[in-house]
Design a protein around this nucleic acid. Structure first.
Length: 124
RNA sequence: ACUGUAAGCAGUCUUAUCGCUCUUUCAGCAAUGUUGGAGAGGAAAGUCCGGGCAACAUAGGGCAUCGUACUUCCUAACAGGAAGGGGGUUUCGAGAUCAUCGGGAUCAACAGAUAGUGCCACAGAAAACAGACUACCGCCUAGGAUUCGUUCCCGGGAGGAAAAGGUGAAAAGGUGGGGUAAGAGCCCACCGCUUUGUUGGUGACAACAAAGGCAUGGUAAACCUUACGAGUUGAAAGGCCAAAUAAGCCCCGAUAAAGUGAACGGCUCGUUCUUAUCCUUAAAUGGAUAUCGGGGUGGGUAGGCUGAUUGAGUUCGUCAGUGAUGACGAAACCAGACAAAUGAUGAGAGCCCUCCCCCUACUCCCGAUAAUCCGAUAACAAUCGGGAUCGGGAUCGGGUCUGGGAACAGAACCCGGCUUACACGCUUACUUUUUUU
RNA sequence: GCCGUUGUAGCUCAGUGGUAGAGCACUUCCUUGGUAAGGAAGAGGUCGACAGUUCAAUCCUGUUCAACGGCU
């Protein structure tokens, strides 16, 4: 098995890249998630960088936002070996559903999104 | 027993796999790996108050604006807290009744309405300068009736008086008595109010005495007055390092400083002099270009460290105080993230609710009585009641077992409060309903 | 993290303490051969929620809920 870490380097935290991702990134919907993806603009980047967010409009309480973000993060951490590491990507996971869904369904949708990304790269 | 309200306490535990943040041991140039340790709350929430801390501002005083408002104390400070004072509501008792007094429970942002201004709908005669209206009273008087003494009816005049008008949230001290033409604090008793004094209390205030004779309707969470307080902005503050501040365009200046160039000297520096070119002019007068400097635009950078967790702190004990709280001593170090860690998936234990089944002290209910005991109807029989026994059911409790539940809620520089949210459980006070005495 | 604004009829908004209104929309009637426009009448409000001040609160005060905006 590969490394199932999720360290600070894999978090997307630079404001400029985030803006670029939200402007140019290709978006697909895997309910309950919306996934934005873009090749990383920094050529020295080795690992993928991921942004996870749950809008405060749908979840008023910080506890609910935290639980949703934690479940998405676990889903990415356990399934990130599905995509190859060679060209680094920027990803954004936005939680769209208005209820807190169980982590099984969230993991399923993450898995399918990663499969699709892998297929796209093969075509390229 | 049960229902609810308020206050307080407490708000799961163990373990497997894979991870996150900080720290630590060892290895390594480093990335990193490895060993051990720590890792959300009573409200972390709302951001309603008050501070610490930081930057900027600031002679002193006043005005404006905003806030606070019974007293004393606590506190770093507060619109917070503690202990009191007076007040409202309700209930019980005293008072023949009323005013009022005393006890209990409970509520409360409680300075000033004789500094001034404003407002008080509807209703009502009148809503704040009291007296316009109706009604009351005697005096004078026009007319009518009459039993011709007078009385009655209906008007007028100049007065008296502030008692009556039942409407309103609120009506100009209250109740009773005297007094009077009618009345009135006009006089008296009790009570309230105001002023003054004495005593007690640190004080809010209370008690008592004397005088006044009612003058003073409500509203300040209306303006306002008085007293006290408040500089502004918040960690997205501030400090250090790294990176960047380019080109282009616009404006101003070349006096000083700096810079450039030159000369000299003791030459990593000092002294002295000094913009340059072109056109134009009497003139460095004016203009253009270049260079340099400053400002703007433009675009660019926006990462790390610090601030930042040893503190008005925590736990335990003793002492002081009615209490909030304080003093002293001891012990340990107990989250520190930053597009934001403290998790995900399983398993088990305990707790709560529910379903099936079993046992069951005491108690209660229903039914039966072949035999047996007691009592009532004078006695027997019979009947009734009670006991006893048997059967069935309910309940407290215990065991087994099915399914489910576990609230409110996530640190964001740090503290002190307030407010709001909160499942199950426990304690205290009050309380709904039912049963028994 | 810090600061602010708003909440009134189905919609857009007035209303500075005395029984809450306008425009559009809705219903019924008139007008027309019919519709629109026009005219007449009508219905529809816990003034976001809960407390307090006041005789009386949409308005004043406090708490709370929701929506929206700003600060790098």
């Amino acid at each position: 098995m590969g490394n199932l870490h999720f360290r600070k380097e894999e978090r997307l935290s630079r404001k400029k890249i985030i803006e670029e991702l939200f402007e140019k990134g290709a978006s697909r919907l895997f309910f309950p998630l919306k996934v934005l993806s873009l090749p990383h603009p920094d050529p020295n980047q080795i690992v993928h960088q991921v942004l996870i967010t749950a809008p405060a409009r749908n979840f008023k309480k910080a506890v609910d936002r935290n639980t949703v973000k934690r479940r998405i993060r676990e889903g990415y951490r356990l399934n990130k070996t599905l995509i190859p590491t060679s060209p680094a990507l920027c990803l954004a996971y936005i939680y769209i559903a208005k209820d807190i869904l169980p982590s099984v369904t969230i993991h399923k949708s993450i898995r399918s999104s990663l499969q699709q990304l892998k297929n796209n790269e093969k075509k390229d």
